[in-house]
Design a binder for these strands. Structure first.
Lengths: 240, 240
DNA sequence: CCAAAAGTGTTGGTCGTACACCCATGC
DNA sequence: GCATGGGTGTACGACCAACACTTTTGG
């Protein structure tokens, strides 16, 4: 992409934490770097910001090149400004959190879209697990730049915000129907702990149904085994 | 300061929301701009980031020029990247929240330290009130750049964080003793609402005393009229 | 000068809500 | 086996009341 950076100039980049929940686990999109610096390391997808762009438009441009999703949830995470964070020169990076529903991505996951060699890594404790022919467990040492720090920062933010914002709904099919169990799965994947279904149900219904933002669409659609779940839909879901 | 900006270059600046609690009210430090653009408007103190500085060191440099405080609490707030935010050229601004204890600043408030014409503005609802010979009430229209937006963003963040972090203690004299009423005053100033003293006391004592982070130093020091208050001290106060 | 009033700090109670943990029932 | 609902106990905030200790006021 950008082969050389002028050393006397300051650049601004955006880096993306693209997250989804897949098979009950939180996944993060990583790309393998094919050139210096950090060749062979894993990195968050990123891109330099052009002088006539805002960070948001840069993020949108990058997303459009990578993923077949329209308008995913995104929020600015943090800006990283350590002087030595990029050996090529002075690069300030604005990190963004992006959440995409897994349902929209099936099949597209391991394709190297437009030259990006991207793979989903499963978050496991402090590390990241890659499966398939790239199978490996990645620690901070395998990640380029300060991206391990970005990931930690993003996870903290996500785990913190999930229980006082609508951010969890961004993992579900937009505008689609969902059961409370599916929503619970998202919470459990993000928080990395099992929740009490009974309390979870009360929590959600108290929080949303009384304000009219959550409406039940149909009774009992059967998916898989067990008692069919009631389906709900959220109105005005923006993730807040 | 910086007379001209090259139009083909991207610059990064830091802007500061310096907050304190004074006489039971939340106050913000503003400077009056004496040159174009936005001459005569009010603005947050700010400074361009040099190529060999991190944002944090830029903030520290600016603070050192303005205020006689050592190591105040600070946290990165948000990065503003709209392309048209500065008519001089392309400037991305990283805003920081800075909290200083009023006790350390008495007398220094209205001095134009090192050429900065700075004044404390009291936050009142959506606006800012200046007193003294600069007396005025400032709305968004009197603020330069996108600083009104920055202030709204900072207030939201502060009000949100005050009840799940230690940020309130940053308004008190560091390492000093304080009464629970003084702490309650900080909460009330930040949240802009009266709290129930009984519940507030229980909230604080439960939260801190049981973990051993809050210790009572002396019984009953008399300050003003009314029953003398017990004094406390927080160990490891960092604001988290 | 002394007693009452007013102001501030401190402690306690009740009530309703919300969650943790556990158990029961429906499909 | 999974979805749903109900109970009990605990923690906390809203709201209220009382008491402790001080300064101020007024006779």
């Amino acid at each position: 992409m950008h082969s050389e950076l002028a050393r006397d100039r300051l650049c601004v980049a955006v880096d993306l934490l693209i997250l989804t929940v897949k098979d009950g686990q939180l996944n993060l999109l990583l790309s393998r770097r094919g050139h210096s610096p950090f060749s062979g390391y894993w990195a968050l997808p990123g891109r330099m910001m052009a002088i006539d762009e805002s960070a948001e438009s840069t993020v949108n441009k990058l997303l459009a090149e990578m993923l077949p999703v329209r308008d995913p949830y995104m929020e600015q995470l943090y800006t990283f400004t350590q002087t030595e964070r990029d050996p090529r020169g002075r690069v300030v990076s604005v990190a963004y959190l992006v959440i995409v529903p897994w349902g929209r991505l099936k099949g597209v996951l391991e394709t190297a879209a437009n030259g990006f060699q991207c793979f989903w890594a499963t978050l496991e404790g402090d590390g990241l697990r890659l499966t398939g022919d790239q199978a490996a467990i990645l620690g901070s040492a395998e990640l380029a730049f300060d991206h391990a720090w970005m990931i930690r920062t993003g996870l903290k933010r996500l785990r913190n915000k999930i229980d006082y914002t609508d951010i969890a709904f961004a993992f579900l099919e937009d505008r689609g129907e969902f059961s409370l169990s599916e929503l619970e799965t998202v919470f459990e994947a993000v928080l990395d702990e099992k929740l009490d279904s009974s309390n979870f149900r009360r929590f959600i219904l108290n929080r949303y149904e009384k304000t009219g933002r959550l409406e039940q669409t149909q009774q009992a659609e059967k998916r898989g085994r067990g008692r069919p779940a009631a389906l709900y839909r959220l109105k005005d879901s923006t993730g807040r």
